[in-house]
Design a protein around this nucleic acid. Structure first.
Length: 663
RNA sequence: GCCGGCUUGGCGCAACUGGUAGCGCACCCGACUUGUAAUCGGAAGGUUGCGGGUUCAAGUCCCGCAGCCGGCACCA
């Protein structure tokens, strides 16, 4: 938009003088976002911020949050203010209130907001001293706390900075455009729209929730109201239909509709069972991953689901993650006749990670430098006692199967090995139909005490990862402070069919576990050296990856993954035998196919199997039989009629082999 | 784990301010079956998530628990 055009100011004035277009709601002055009312001096370089630009939408959403807060305090005078920043697609505002809001409060609140918006109140910026701010906001304990924090908070991605992030403390007054009467005020950095009227009607309140004050569970919970706001009613509608589209793809809904998996309450929260139709998809996925891994030089290993506590003590998991491990079961306790404990027995834990087991395989005998790199892979079932509120369909569960691998490498092999691992990962994700990626490099930050290992290790491994990431040619996003405590990692983020991003594979450097387990190999000079480990979760967990694919495809898997690949539908009973012969030929080629010989009539059968998202319906009637052909009907309703049987079989098996959606 | 909401046959839903559960689809049975998203008829199926309580009477009101949903916190 026009935002990029920079104008040099020649006369004193303000943004209203420079920008007359009503769609311009703010401006950048010498790089800083400002209200249009900001005083401009000759020499200032200014550019326009349109309401539908990313900056403009943030401002619109932030201003809408203010209107919400004003409405809340008009209806609930005792409510105190937390923070109210813009977020992706909308905004929220946190309130301290005695009783939580419910959606029933939305009606009155939205009415009050509409009144404020129609009234056309001006947002008026005012610089205040800390003492003035404290006096004016004496009844706002959370705001006072933020004033106290000012200076300590510099991170602009932090919601708090919306209130006090600027160089000076500012209060925005909402004033009557004609009389100047002040209706409401809020501690805020701004900028804001010139007038509440510009919020228009492209907004809605969406949900209520509790949120810990300043993001810590040690703090009280405030009541958060979420809303969405757009530059126009049409943009709002588009946003709402995107949400509806996402809801239709929800893997929990599709999982039940397509009979793929379920979560019987008898088993417990976060534990999935896989029905035959889901099981076959998962089996295809696992077999493909296994084949690719073996071609890339991975070995497959198998390890148990439980272990004595000592293993996780040595690995450090019990000290770091005991809270999210299932509690131990104590075995082999021995009592004497008097009931006294003679032997305390052993604690066994369900495993939350596979790495220590793979390490034990490595350590089973002395290793030569010639053996490295060693690549151990396993579909390892692990159990994590996730908080009940964290559980979510297949994407956050308590029992999961990791497509896990651990590589033991010499330091001189590290970079090459990371590069080939990344290559394998991306290639395999493409096999599954994901094609739009970017990388994230998680590194250590300056926080002391959090990180293990010396600076040199961090520097060399981080640099190696960065070189590999850059060489991939993919977009690279830095994630400072996101590393595990023992080493940096690269993660692959994938965008799905409707533009959502998911963190998938991770490649993580770990010098720590080899240290803890005293792993060694014998170098060419006969000395004992320590290998480095690379943790590589290819698809993450099979459960989560399955869920992501299910949503990506909206249930319409490509033929190689589809639970049922072909269903034969005779036009009438008479043609069932002819079709059965065709379907039998497909089955002989390994295609999952059957003839629907039920009593339903043909259109009903088409409806049934189209809803089940079967990729290929083969239809045969008199015309087809007469010419030794079949007719295709695809999921989108298109047809391909009169295809000779041999052709049809080749095209179907070919599409399956190519892992293609296209025939 | 925290806050709020929800929970009615397999699935999707209905039952006014409390008056003793109804519909569609699916399942089962019967008939029907000629070209691309629902043939017709019939039968069966629920002590309304679980446990307490209030009431002459509870799917509806109250309490506890469980599960799910939306957030927050957490996510090796």
């Amino acid at each position: 938009m026009a935002e990029t055009v920079e104008i040099v100011v020649t006369e004193p004035g303000d943004g209203f003088g420079v920008f007359t277009d009503r769609a311009i709601v703010a401006m950048r002055v010498n790089g800083e976002l400002r209200d249009l009312a900001h005083r401009l001096e000759p020499g200032d370089r200014v550019s326009a911020v349109a309401i539908d630009s990313p900056d403009g939408l943030d401002i619109l959403r932030h201003s809408t949050a203010h209107v919400l807060a004003q409405a809340v305090q008009s209806l609930h005078p005792q409510a105190t203010l937390g923070i109210g920043p813009p977020v992706t697609d909308g905004f929220y505002y946190d309130f301290g209130v005695d009783s939580p809001f419910t959606v029933d409060d939305f009606g009155p609140l939205q009415k009050a907001m509409e009144r404020i918006i129609r009234q056309g109140q001006r947002f008026q910026r005012r610089v205040v001293t800390e003492a003035e701010a404290r006096a004016e906001l004496a009844d706002e304990p959370y705001k006072l706390e933020l004033i106290g924090l000012k200076g300590g908070v510099g991170d602009s991605s932090d919601g708090e900075s919306v209130e006090v992030g600027g160089a000076e403390l500012t209060i925005y007054d909402n004033v009557d455009a004609k009389t100047g009467e002040v209706y409401w005020k809020d501690l805020c950095r701004g900028p804001h729209l010139p007038s509440t009227r510009m919020i228009g009607n492209g907004w809605a309140l969406t949900r209520v929730a509790a949120a810990y004050w300043r993001g810590s569970e040690k703090n009280p919970q405030l009541q958060r109201i979420y809303g969405t706001a757009w530059a126009s009613k049409d943009a709002l509608r588009e946003h709402q239909s995107r949400l509806e589209e996402a809801a239709k793809r929800d893997h929990r809904k599709l999982g039940a509709e397509l009979d793929l998996f379920s979560f019987p309450t008898e088993i417990g929260s976060g534990m999935s069972v896989w029905h035959p139709r889901g099981g076959i998809v998962r089996l295809e996925m696992e077999q493909h991953a296994m084949r690719r891994n073996r071609e890339a030089g991975y070995s497959y290993v198998y390890t148990p689901h439980i272990t004595k506590s000592a293993l996780f003590e040595q690995s450090g998991h019990l000290t770091n993650y005991a809270d999210s491990m299932f509690p131990p079961m104590t075995l082999d306790v021995v009592h004497d006749e008097a009931g006294e404990v003679v032997s305390p027995g052993q604690d066994y834990y369900l495993k939350p990670m596979n790495c220590p087991f793979h390490i034990l395989i490595y350590r089973e005998r002395p290793r030569s430098y010639r053996e490295l790199p060693l690549r151990y892979s396993e579909f390892g079932a692990v159990y994590r006692n996730e908080h009940s509120g964290a559980l979510h369909g297949l994407t956050r569960v308590r029992g999961l199967t990791m497509d896990d691998a651990h590589l033991f490498v010499r330091p001189d092999q590290l970079e090459v090995e990371v590069a080939s691992t990344l290559e394998l990962v991306l290639s395999m994700l493409r096999d599954f139909g994901l094609t739009d990626f970017y990388l994230e490099l998680s590194t250590r930050d300056d926080v002391k005490d959090k990180w293990l290992g010396d600076d040199e290790m961090w520097q060399t491994t981080t640099e190696a990862l960065r070189r590999v990431a850059v060489a991939s040619g993919l977009e690279l996003v830095d994630d400072p402070g996101g590393a595990a405590f023992y080493g940096p990692k690269i993660s692959v983020q994938a965008r799905d069919a409707i533009g959502r991003t998911w963190q998938l594979s991770t490649v993580q450097i770990d010098p720590n576990l080899p240290e803890r387990f005293d792993l060694e190999y014998t170098a060419p000079d006969g000395s004992r050296q320590r290998p480095i480990m690379i943790h590589r979760a290819l698809l993450g967990s099979m459960e989560r990856f399955f869920a992501i694919l299910l949503e990506h495809y909206a249930g319409a898997f490509p033929a190689w993954l589809a639970p049922e690949q072909v269903v034969g539908i005779p036009v009438a009973e008479e043609f069932a035998d002819y079709l059965t012969d065709v379907i039998d030929q497909l089955r002989a080629r390994g295609v999952r196919a059957h003839v629907d010989d039920s009593d339903d009539r043909m259109p009903k059968k088409i409806r049934t199997h189209t809803k089940a998202k079967v990729p290929y319906l083969l239809i045969a009637g008199e015309d087809d039989r007469a010419q030794g052909a079949v007719s295709f009907r695809f999921r989108d309703g298109t047809q391909l009629n009169g295809v000779p049987v041999a052709d049809a079989i080749e095209r179907i098996t070919g599409a399956i082999e190519r892992r293609s959606q296209e025939l």
